[in-house]
């Protein structure tokens, strides 16, 4: 099955794969954080991911982060996210140039945005769990909207699936 990126369906697919890999994530330990993924391309799409104990317990799209309580936000252009996901799919996991820490360290491709340094540090407290969560994209067929000739600005101009 092919899923569109970025979309709630994409992150729900990762969530389902995380449940299938429950033993692996249990081995990594408690994973308690809520963070946002922001994908920009003309407009922007924002997704909230909440992790608790060993699971991803909530995935949702929001119009904005106003009023949302997140530890940090991973924010980047569509091309940067696509490059990361294509790399994961090509190698089965992120290679040396595409790990979350590498992509965000100086914020050149993907930025970590935060208000609270304690929340920021949660990215690093749980970094291996977060990395392995994104690495689950290796098993997902991703549709970037090209087949339908859907441009980024069209897709990003409206927030789909937001409550």
């Amino acid at each position: 099955m092919t899923v569109r990126f970025p979309s709630v369906e994409f992150f729900t697919a990762l969530q389902a794969r995380m449940r299938e890999a429950a033993d692996r994530f249990r081995r990594l330990g408690y994973f308690d954080t809520t963070f946002a993924v922001k994908v920009r391309d003309g407009g922007e799409r924002v997704f909230l991911l909440r992790f608790e104990v060993f699971d991803c317990v909530d995935v949702r799209e929001v119009e904005s982060l106003a009023g949302a309580s997140v530890d940090f936000t991973l924010e980047g252009r569509f091309e940067a996210w696509r490059e990361m996901l294509d790399d994961i799919r090509a190698h089965g996991h992120a290679d040396a140039n595409h790990s979350i820490n590498t992509l965000t360290h100086f914020g050149e491709k993907i930025r970590v945005v935060y208000d609270d340094p304690d929340g920021h540090d949660k990215l690093y407290r749980f970094v291996e769990s977060i990395q392995e969560f994104f690495d689950l994209a290796a098993g997902i067929e991703i549709d970037y909207g090209e087949a339908r000739g859907e441009t980024g600005s069209e897709y990003f101009s409206s927030t789909k699936g937001a409550p």
Partner: peptide
Amino acid sequence: DVDKKMFRLVMQDEA
């Protein structure tokens, strides 16, 4: 990649 994983694991503890 081996070293990347090593540093991710130590940074979790340090954080």
